[in-house]
């Protein structure tokens, strides 16, 4: 019996790849729709937004990232500031960065992080700002009406900071400043690295102690640990 004709391997592979691409685009679009329909539920709290925004800074090659939270109950304001010394953006990119269909990532066709945080500020009558200079760094500032019913909770900042140090603490320095009214603290991995000398900062024991310390400080200033 004659063999069935063999499909041209390169051609069939190309078609398969195309189909797979189409499917992936479809799934991403679907997911994007899910996300925009229920933005508030995707990143449940601000500590997850912060983790995500800091991930941008890490992708941008930042070596020093400052995370500042100011809870000012009297002025009824909550301010988040994430400042990095990464590669920055030019004017054009900043303008595009807030478009959810804009991303410079090669693994995906949509970017959501910045637009979702902007959306979260809007829902709580706040403001959102990106300052960036190419080659210098980027600062993201999100402001919220503190007691606004739609203001997302701050969430678990301790786990966000620990996750960042566990994942990137050897290459990147994190400065976490948290104020509530007139109390506050600064947590600086550069200081800690000096203290622990040859012990890597992502060591499990070190992380446990850092975790305990952050919780203690948050309690001391009257913030939710």
């Amino acid at each position: 019996m004659a063999n069935p004709p063999k499909a041209d391997d390169t051609a069939s592979k190309a078609i398969l790849r195309l189909l797979r691409d189409c499917f992936e685009i479809y799934r991403e679009t679907q997911r994007y729709c899910d996300i925009t329909n229920g933005v508030r539920n995707i990143l449940q709290d601000l500590s997850l937004h912060i983790l995500d925004i800091v991930e941008n800074s890490i992708d941008a090659g930042a070596k020093k990232i400052e995370i500042i939270i100011k809870e000012n109950v009297k002025q009824n304001m909550l301010v988040l500031k994430i400042k990095d010394n990464g590669k920055g953006m030019d004017k054009n990119t900043i303008a595009k960065a807030l478009d959810p269909f804009y991303t410079t990532k090669k693994t995906r066709r949509i970017g959501l992080g910045l637009s979702m945080l902007a959306q979260a500020t809007k829902e709580a009558d706040g403001t959102f700002q990106i300052k960036s200079q190419k080659g210098k760094g980027t600062t993201v500032i999100a402001k919220f009406v503190y007691d606004h019913i739609d203001r997302k909770p701050i969430g678990n900042m301790t786990e966000t900071i620990i996750a960042l140090i566990a994942g990137k603490g050897m290459d990147v320095d994190f400065i976490y400043e948290h104020h509530k009214n007139s109390h506050g603290f600064v947590f600086d991995t550069r200081t800690i690295k000096k203290e622990i000398k040859d012990i890597p900062i992502n060591n499990g024991e070190v992380l446990n102690i850092l975790r305990e310390n952050i919780i203690k400080e948050l309690k001391r200033i009257g913030a939710r640990p």
Binding site: F185, V186, T191, E195, V206, I209, N213
Partner: peptide, 12 residues
């Protein structure tokens, strides 16, 4: 403002 330092250094 208070700078966070880790105690228990010897233990770590």
């Amino acid at each position: 403002m208070k700078k966070l330092k880790i105690g228990d250094l010897e233990k770590i």
